[in-house]
C-alpha cells in the first residue's frame, strides 16, 4: 500500500486488506492515559467489550491497555465496576 500511486494504478473497487487499520496508530490522540490497578481488577471484561478502539486486550486472565491505539476517551474508567482504572494526564 502506498500513497504514491496514481488513480490509474489503483485496484478496481479500491480493495484494501481487512484489518489494515492496525497499520495506523492512534495513541498520539491521547491527552489522558488509563492505568489499570490490578489489585482492584476482577477481570470482568467490561472495559474490553466497551472500548471503542479495541485498545483493551485479553491476555490470559488479565486485561491490558494497548497504548499504541488507546485514544484516552475514558469510557473504560467510567464503566469499570470496581473503579480499577484511573485516567492520568499524559506526559508530553
Amino acid at each position: 500500500m502506498s500513497f504514491n500511486k496514481s488513480w490509474k494504478e489503483m485496484e478496481i473497487g479500491a480493495v484494501v486488506k481487512g484489518g489494515s487499520g492496525l497499520l495506523y496508530k492512534t495513541g498520539n490522540w491521547r491527552s489522558e492515559k488509563p492505568i489499570i490497578d490490578y489489585t482492584k481488577c476482577i477481570n470482568c471484561l467490561i472495559c474490553w467489550a466497551l472500548c471503542p478502539d479495541s485498545a483493551i486486550l485479553r491476555k490470559g486472565n488479565k486485561v491490558e491497555v494497548n497504548y499504541d491505539y488507546c485514544k484516552g476517551c475514558g469510557i473504560c474508567a467510567n464503566e469499570c465496576p470496581t473503579k480499577a482504572i484511573n485516567m492520568e494526564k499524559e506526559e508530553v
Partner: peptide, 21 residues
C-alpha cells in the same frame, strides 16, 4: 478483535462500540 484498532472515529465513539460488539 474483528473490528480492529487504528480507525479514525472520534475518541469515545458510540457507533465504534456498536461495530465492535
Amino acid at each position: 478483535n474483528l473490528f480492529t484498532s487504528g480507525h479514525r472515529l472520534c475518541a469515545g465513539c458510540g457507533p465504534a462500540i456498536v461495530a465492535r460488539l
